[in-house]
Design a protein around this nucleic acid. Structure first.
Length: 653
DNA sequence: ATAGGGTTAG
């Protein structure tokens, strides 16, 4: 309207105003109560906070920040606290940029202070955060429980119990925050993360109020420290058990190599009608993988499909299934799961590559790795362990060395002791013992037991007692109680006839009080029953039949030119006695039982707790030929697929 | 405005 007054006469202007008012009557003026405006402001704040929450990158956050300033909200602690938390979330250091935002606020509230304190703590800048914390208290602001939970979280992440304890003391002094449930839980978590489980437990016992979260934190901590008895005790005392608490128990058992208990717990969970999710499933699947039993594999796969988390829709479950099927001897099934997955992450690829490697399918492992590097998924250190293992099982030395080089140069992954183990294994298996030994001597990190163990293993294949003695002496210092090393060295001495050295090792074992842990094998019958066999084991109800079947098999093999291999018998005795000992190896008993108890023509799957010996290996080869059966043996290292007289390991194991 | 459970290797 004002614009008209310059161009027209007053009368005209009045007239035009009159017309315009008629067409656009002014809205009636109403008084908006202050509370309503406050509400609108609050709404705007809420909107901005949720917009910030949805930000996916720094640019978006900066845009919202500009909007905040435009709307004159540079004093709104609620919005600014969220803004600062977002900067922290995206790892933006507080100092050059976000800090001034705080400095311009006249009356910061506890949440704004806390956002900044938390940010500094995450940056591990303790001085700044403690300064802010004391400033906050000097100004008479807060603290609130969120302040303490942040402080404890950061102390836990930085493993700083000293600071944690100091603040713990203050929670009691300041307004009784020590009694706050959330603060209490974060204190327990802090003590646990810093490795002081018992302090966490003491706190738990003294807490006036506890919830299922306090309980679960401790259950998990006990599980991680290998103390499942205490975990069970706590779980029994937990009044209201929810899905997360149950899952903590299942995964606790799985992580402590108690797969049967893990499965039992999971079954109970289903029985009680407790909900299960991907994480629960992943934990049970890993338990089934440890069992290595095909029956459980199919069962859990079925359960997963029925609960809607099949491999196709869940990367998590899919990856776990791949690992499980590989460990149960069904690489084919693992492949099928892998192929069917809509989304794949580093776990999916690594598990599949490791699966191929375990089964001696080196070419497939390498091809998959080449395919992987063309995708967005970045290989990690586990992926390289898979690729290197594949190379060493197939004797692909040059390819392995090339990958080892690229690992650091192209992918920025520093080789760990485990990677050096793979390389020693690769060179050693290929018979390049000197190079393997040189690598151990020149590696930039301290060689651990695994590295020397790989060298010792290579000496067994290539019968080199001198290098073996060097490796074993390191192992006797690093792992004095690991019986396997003594036995391996004794075997190597025995196979080159150095009986004096064999008896020296025996004496050493005796003085250190070491006993051989029994070797055993197990096989699943067609009904899903698991049959265990120890060496010399005649306790099986069908022992007589088993013995006859085995003798019969060996006779037929000898007709084809099989000769018993005495290298695996580290005793100075005559060949007839050695022959009798070889007869009693547990995997041979399991094989004989498999032959008489399963349908002719079906696969035979045997699992063994230690490495398969040379003689059993050649018997398995022969048996696969004369019976026409596919025989799969999983030892503690890998899988052997025997088919028509040859093994997938190509003689390397 | 905040929380507890998870898979691959050694």
């Amino acid at each position: 309207m004002i614009a008209f007054s310059c161009k027209f006469s007053t009368a005209t202007a009045n007239y035009l105003t009159y017309i315009s008012l008629k067409r656009f009557p002014p809205k009636p003026r109403t008084f908006t109560p202050l509370s309503q405006i406050q509400q609108q402001c609050k709404q705007l704040e809420c909107q901005l906070v949720s917009t910030l929450d949805g930000c996916e990158n720094l640019n978006q956050i900066k845009q919202v920040h500009a909007h905040i300033l435009l709307n004159g909200l540079d004093q709104s602690c609620y919005v600014l606290a969220k803004l600062i938390r977002m900067f922290t979330k995206f790892n933006i250091p507080l100092d050059p940029y976000p800090r001034p935002i705080f400095n311009r606020v006249k009356y910061p509230n506890p949440f704004l202070y806390t956002a900044l304190i938390r940010g500094y703590l995450i940056e591990a800048r303790f001085n700044e955060s403690i300064e802010l914390y004391s400033l906050m208290r000097k100004e008479g602001v807060g603290p609130v429980s969120f302040t303490f939970t942040s402080l404890f979280k950061a102390c836990g992440a930085n493993m700083d119990v000293g600071l944690g304890q100091q603040i713990h003391g203050q929670t009691i002094v300041i307004g009784g925050f020590g009694a706050d449930l959330h603060v209490g839980n974060s204190m327990i978590e802090m003590y646990i993360k810093c490795g002081f489980l018992e302090c966490g437990r003491k706190l738990f016992d003294e807490m006036p109020k506890r919830d299922v979260i306090s309980w679960t934190e401790l259950i998990v901590a006990y599980g991680k420290s290998g103390n499942m008895e205490s975990a069970c005790e706590l779980f029994d005392g937990l009044p209201v058990k929810d899905m997360v608490a149950w899952t903590a128990m299942v995964s606790g058992f799985a992580q402590n190599a108690k797969p049967r208990e893990a499965i039992t717990f999971f079954e109970k969970m289903l029985e009680f009608g407790v909900e299960t999710d991907e994480i629960t499933l992943v934990s049970v699947i890993s338990a089934c993988a440890q069992l290595g039993a095909a029956k459980y594999a199919d069962w859990i796969h079925d359960v997963a499909e029925k609960s809607g988390f099949c491999g196709r829709h869940s990367v998590l479950v899919g990856s776990a299934l791949i690992d499980m099927y590989s460990k149960c001897g069904s690489v084919g099934e693992a492949c099928r799961v892998f192929e069917g997955m809509k989304e794949r992450n580093v776990y999916s690829y690594s598990s599949m590559i490791l699966g191929f490697a375990m089964h001696g399918r080196a070419r497939d492992a390498m091809d998959l790795f080449d395919e992987m590097v063309k995708t967005e998924v970045k290989p990690n250190r586990v992926t390289f362990i898979g690729v290197l293992t594949a190379c060493s099982h197939a004797g692909m030395v040059e390819q392995g060395q090339e990958i080892f080089e690229l690992m650091e140069k192209r992918y920025g992954i520093k080789p760990s002791a485990a990677h050096y183990t793979c390389m020693v294994d690769l060179l050693g298996r290929a018979g390049r013992l000197q190079e393997a030994h040189d690598l151990v001597k020149t590696m930039p990190i301290e060689p651990h037991g695994g590295v020397w163990g790989a060298l010792l293993g290579a000496c067994r294949i290539h019968k080199n007692p001198d290098v073996a003695a060097i490796a074993a002496n390191h192992l006797f210092e690093l792992e004095p109680n690991c019986i396997g090393n003594y036995i391996l060295l004794a075997n190597i001495y025995a196979s080159s006839g150095r009986w004096n050295d064999v008896s020296t090792i025996r004496k050493l074992m005796r003085t250190r009080g070491l006993k051989k842990n029994p070797a055993f094998s197990w096989i699943e019958s067609e009904k899903g029953m698991v049959h265990e066999f120890f060496s010399w084991d005649m306790t099986h109800p069908r022992s007589g039949e088993i013995k006859r079947a085995l003798e019969d098999l060996l006779d037929r093999l000898e007709g084809k030119g099989y000769q018993p291999n005495f290298n695996s018998v580290p005793y100075d005795m005559n060949d007839e006695d050695k022959r009798r000992i070889l007869m009693t190896h547990s995997e041979k008993l399991a094989l004989a039982f498999g032959l008489i108890s399963t349908t002719p023509g079906s696969d035979i799957r045997i699992v063994k707790n230690i490495r398969i010996c040379e003689d059993c290996h050649s018997v398995m080869c022969g048996a696969s030929q004369i019976t026409g059966r596919e025989i799969v043996v999983r030892d503690n290292m890998r899988f052997h697929h025997f088919h028509d007289g040859t093994c997938s390991c190509g003689g390397f194991w």
